[in-house]
C-alpha cells in the first residue's frame, strides 16, 4: 500500500471488525455472569479506540505538516503512527513491570492484555504496510 487513504480503509475496517468481536464477546460474557472476563474484553475495545484515534491524529498531523507527494506523506505517516506503538504502551510496560515486581496479579493481567492488543495492531499495520 502506498497511500494513507488505501491503508486507512483496510486497517481501520479490520480494527472495527476486531473491536466488534470484543464488544459481542463482552456482552455474552456479561450475560453469562463472567463479569471480569467481560471487563477484559472492554479493555481491549478501549485499546482499539485509542489506536483508531491515534491513526486519525497521525494522518491529520502529516497532512498538515508534510508538503510533498502522496508517497512522501505516506512514509512520514507510517513513521508517525508506528511511533505511537512505542510511545503510548510505554506507561503500560512500566505498570506491568511494577505489577510483576509487587505480585499484583489483576494489574499484571490487564497490562498484558493491553500490550498484547497493541502488539497485534502494530503487527497488523506492518503487514498491511508491506503488502
Amino acid at each position: 500500500m502506498k497511500t494513507i487513504g488505501e491503508i486507512k480503509q483496510v486497517y481501520l475496517d479490520e480494527l472495527e471488525l476486531r473491536k466488534s468481536v470484543c464488544v459481542t464477546k463482552a456482552t455474552s460474557l456479561q450475560a453469562d455472569n463472567k463479569l471480569d472476563e467481560a471487563n477484559f474484553e472492554k479493555i481491549k475495545v478501549n485499546v482499539f479506540d485509542i489506536f483508531t484515534t491515534l491513526f486519525n491524529a497521525s494522518e491529520k498531523k502529516v497532512n498538515a505538516s508534510v508538503k510533498g507527494t502522496d508517497l512522501e506523506k505516506y512514509n512520514q505517516f507510517c513513521i508517525e503512527y508506528l511511533e505511537t506503538f512505542n510511545k503510548i504502551p510505554s506507561s503500560w510496560r512500566i505498570k506491568l513491570e511494577y505489577s510483576i515486581k509487587n505480585n499484583l496479579i489483576a494489574d499484571k493481567v490487564i497490562e498484558e492484555l493491553k500490550l498484547d492488543v497493541a502488539d497485534s495492531l502494530k503487527n497488523l499495520f506492518n503487514e498491511m504496510r508491506e503488502s
Binding site: D36, E37, F40, I105, A106, K108, V109, E112
Partner: peptide
C-alpha cells in the same frame, strides 16, 4: 493468566 487472575481473587 485469566485463571491466575481469578485464583488471586
Amino acid at each position: 493468566s485469566t485463571i491466575s487472575f481469578h485464583l488471586k481473587k
